[in-house]
Amino acid sequence: MSTVKNEREPLFSAKNIRLMTTPLNKENPITKQVLGICSALAVTVKVEPAIVMAISVMAVMAIGNLVISLLRNSIPNRIRIIVQLVVIAALVILVDQVLKAYSYDVSKQLSVFVGLIITNCIIMGRFEAFAMGNKPWPSFLDGLGNAAGYGWILIAVAVARELFGSGTIMGMTIIPEGFYKFGYVNNGLMILPPMALIVVAVIIWIQRARNKDMVEEN
């Protein structure tokens, strides 16, 4: 019955590479799919938590995508959301415990937001949209790519907010003392959540100004 299947694809075929690179720019989860905005507002006041958050999401997403993809043929369709949640929850608890063990301070700063990775729309979105219908290896790469796309926006926003809001990056003072003597003052609005939205909006603006085909018609 079975005909000859297509021969094995190389691990890093052009298609698989594209799975990893398009989320960085054209299919970015935050700026194009507009997912995961909540955590982009919450953890981007300082760079360090943003980096930790990006890495945590990457771990959960890549492994989660892999697991869901392996299970995809045995998950009953009607309870698939529950199964997906169980997988994410297990992974998030692991990440949370690792953070508590190895970098307790950052874990305290991120506080509830590590737990809230469970509700991060990007993860559920990728499980549903990709892992449920694709093989494990491409799913893994897709998870990595989307988490990286999410992560670099997070870090870019955090750099802007920490630099102008607190005058530091990763806790190191960047704005020279002389500026303050001339009357420069850190921008308090940068520390408040609304400014994260505006910084994200600026990134979206720049991105769409560079690629005209990303501009939505309405």
Partner: peptide
């Protein structure tokens, strides 16, 4: 409003 929230001391 921008100034009020960004530089409240001023």
């Amino acid at each position: 409003a921008f100034l009020f929230f960004a530089y409240p001391a001023y």
